[in-house]
Simulated assay, not measured.
Amino acid sequence: MKTKLILLALLVPCSFLFSQNYCMSNPEGFGAAATGGGNAVPVTVTNLADLTAKLKLKTPQVILVSGTINCSYTSLAVNDKTIIGLPGARLVNLDQTAVGSGILSLKSGSNNIIIRNLIFEGPGSYDVDGHDNLTSEATNIWVDHCEFQDGMDGNFDNKGDADNVTISWCKFTYLKTPKSGGTGGADDHRFSNLIGSSKTDAPADGHYSITFKNCYWAKGCKQRMPRVRNAEIHILNCLYNTSESGSVAIGLGGGTKNSTCYVEGSDFVNVDKVFKEYTSTDGGEVGIAFDHCRKSPMDFGTKVNKPSYAYTTIPLGKVEEFVSNTSCGAGATLQVSSTGLINANCTNKI
Results as ranks from 00 to 15, higher is better:
A53M: 03
Q61F: 00
S72C: 00
N93M: 02
S19E: 14
L64H: 10
G85T: 09
T44G: 09
V65G: 04
G88Q: 05
T82H: 08
N93Q: 02
T46M: 13
G85S: 03
F16Q: 14
D95Y: 00
A33W: 05
V92P: 00
S19M: 11
S19V: 07
G36N: 05
I69L: 07
G38R: 14
G36R: 07
L55Y: 06
G37C: 08
L86Y: 11
G36A: 05
L76G: 02
F30L: 12
A53G: 05
G38I: 09
N21K: 03
N47R: 00
V43I: 15
C71M: 15
L55W: 02
A89I: 04
P87G: 10
G29R: 04
V43T: 14
V45A: 07
N79Y: 00
G36D: 10
T59F: 12
V41H: 02
V65R: 01
L55S: 01
S75D: 12
A40P: 01
L55P: 09
T68Q: 14
L86Q: 12
F16Y: 05
T46V: 13
G67V: 09
K58G: 15
V62H: 09
N39P: 05
T44S: 12
L51P: 07
T52K: 15
A33T: 15
G37S: 04
T82E: 10
Y73N: 14
T59I: 13
L57E: 14
N79Q: 14
F16V: 15
C14R: 02
S72Y: 00
A34T: 11
K54V: 02
G88T: 08
L57R: 13
I69A: 01
V65P: 02
M24T: 13
P42R: 08
S72Q: 12
L86H: 13
V65C: 02
L86K: 13
L94C: 00
P27Y: 06
I83S: 03
V41G: 04
L55A: 02
T52S: 14
A32D: 13
L57V: 12
S66G: 06
T44A: 09
T52I: 12
V45T: 08
R90C: 07
G85F: 05
A40L: 06
S75T: 11
C71V: 04
S72P: 02
V45C: 09
Q61I: 03
K81R: 04
L76P: 00
S75H: 10
V92E: 06
D80Q: 05
T35E: 10
L91I: 02
K81H: 08
C23G: 09
F30P: 10
A33K: 06
I63E: 05
T52C: 02
G88A: 08
T46G: 11
T74W: 01
I84L: 12
I83E: 07
K81C: 04
L48T: 07
V62T: 11
S75R: 15
V62K: 03
G38F: 11
S72K: 13
D50W: 01
L51R: 02
N47H: 03
A33E: 13
Y22D: 00
I84H: 09
A53C: 01
T44L: 02
I83G: 08
L17I: 15
L94Y: 01
I84M: 07
N26S: 15
T46F: 05
A53V: 02
A77W: 01
